[in-house]
């Protein structure tokens, strides 16, 4: 596939995801809303990392370096949230 065309298609996909996440924000989905919003954000970030930042062309080590920051953030968020979510379980 033409390299430029592929990038334009990825861009189009990003725009569609943006439209979906915007629409979903107005739907009465309750507690699922933030999950959907962040799920779509993750999908967008993945598209950017994979195609625009060209991780698809790189080896395992470089991919590892690129996602290390995100993995570490997950640690930070998970364990911090573990505190905030369970702090009031005991009176």
């Amino acid at each position: 596939m033409n390299a430029v065309l592929r990038r334009v298609l990825v861009w189009a996909a990003l725009m569609v995801l943006l439209a979906i996440t915007l629409g979903a924000a107005f739907l009465p989905l309750g507690a699922a809303r933030p999950w959907i919003a962040y799920g779509i954000a993750t999908a967008k970030a993945a598209l950017i990392l994979w195609f625009f930042m060209e991780l698809r062309r790189e080896g395992g080590l470089v991919r590892l370096a690129a996602i290390a920051g995100f993995v570490w953030l997950t640690i930070l968020f998970t364990l911090t949230a573990a505190d905030y979510l369970t702090r009031f379980w005991t009176g």
Binding site: L79, A82, D83, L85, R87
Partner: peptide, 22 residues
């Protein structure tokens, strides 16, 4: 080493459940 920081906060009012994990 990145997943143990909560052990500095056992008496700080952090959730006891989080403390147990840490």
């Amino acid at each position: 080493g990145f997943m143990v920081w909560g052990h500095h906060m056992f008496v700080s009012g952090q959730s006891v459940y989080a403390s147990a994990v840490f």
